[in-house]
Nucleic acid binder design. Structure first.
Lengths: 134, 134, 134, 134
DNA sequence: GTGGTCTAGACCACA
DNA sequence: GTGGTCTAGACCACG
């Protein structure tokens, strides 16, 4: 049973919330290579969501190389696929960095302060991850 | 002259980007109570955006209590608007940095790479801002 | 000193609020024929309003026949002028009645109930007016 | 099919007329919790109005907590919407009747004339409604 | 199918 | 000059 939480009020589309959480489950190892995902209808019912929404999430994760389908069987986690090209990875991150810089600037932070805080948060996150694993 | 930067490619709507940045300008004290905001048409021209988009941003900020209008006169900062504390500024930025770190990690970037790219984007943004002003 | 209260937040324009209240002062006899009204600048200062706003209120009341101006002297209340033609009076009232009927209908009142309540309110208003005069 | 009547000549904006009437339909129980409202385009066509005007009415009612939207699905009545009590219905109508009586009095109409004209307008409105439905 | 956003541009009311 | 409303119509994202 997959632990996925949807925020109906959020502006992030439902299918993206699903995608992101599955992606995270894989990245953190809670879903391993060739693990089977719940059937579309099952997950849709669990999340109280239109089945099409789950279909879309699975489809886009398949296109991204994180999932694969076996006809008549089910949907599974891919093994070690690198979903994006180097080019794409940099473009995606750059977009987020641009938004971050605009935001931090209007908040009155300079680049150096942002970087300093970023290092702090990275330490905090690392520590938290280690504890979770322990 | 208000410093507002729009990300046309961003999935966040333009009117929300405007709202958020004005909110931050107020909350950090760079816009004080009863300061006059640029006229709708003026800001629209500055941002290369349709006046209605600015109208919407101003209107929603008015509903939220951050701005008030004087008929036929202009748009002003409400006096009840509470500035951020240093604490809040750091908290807001930290949340975004956490999200960024999670994302960059799933994309396979290490902290140093993120910081390097961040410096690149900052240079790019600075250059763009200077050109806009020229 | 004229007792006029302006509601800045109201959707009714300032000049109309002024008009209505002067009209009311005349209709109730608190301003009599040939009484002098405050100078535009005086009233504008009193109400903390742009002088043009008072100018407009006075002008429209003059057009309506309720006030007259004496050059170099001031503004005065007209004596017994009927501001509107029969035609206009009916048109103005009809518009308000139309709005009232739409509103009462969506509130679930039938015509007979509206008329009944209307008679009630008329009695209440008459009583209140008598008391004020006593 | 929602019964909404617009007064094109009225100084009250169309989107506010729509808002008020939907609010009343909810408050009088003719629209119940989770009832679906007509699609924006449908209502716009019915009222012979631009879709954006309906969008705006729906949006502001959503902000006010009376409606909620389900993405890609439709617009619905919130469950928290409190219906008017009999008391409230009468109070709302009474306020409008009081304003009407004051106005009609300054216009020189007596109660009986107001009622007579009210009956006329009711007939006219009924006729117009019937034609719209035909 | 649904709503969300944005543009282009009109006309009006207000100060 | 200011903001407010409305139209017409485009394109997109979501389910």
């Amino acid at each position: 049973m997959l632990h996925i939480t949807l925020n109906m009020g959020d502006s992030v589309p439902l299918y993206r919330q699903i995608m992101r959480q599955i992606q995270h489950l894989i990245a953190t190892g809670r879903l391993g290579a060739d693990d089977e995902l719940p059937a579309v209808r099952v997950l849709a019912e669990q999340l109280v969501v239109n089945p099409n929404t789950v279909v879309r999430a699975y489809r886009e994760l398949e296109v991204a190389g994180l999932l694969y389908k076996r006809r008549g069987a089910g949907t599974y986690v891919s093994s070690g696929a690198t979903p994006y090209t180097e080019e794409e990875r940099r473009r995606i991150l750059s977009e987020q960095l641009d938004a971050l810089l605009v935001e931090s600037r209007t908040l009155g932070f300079g680049l150096d302060e942002v970087i300093e805080l970023l290092r702090d948060r990275d330490q905090a996150l690392k520590k938290k991850t280690d504890e979770d694993e322990a």
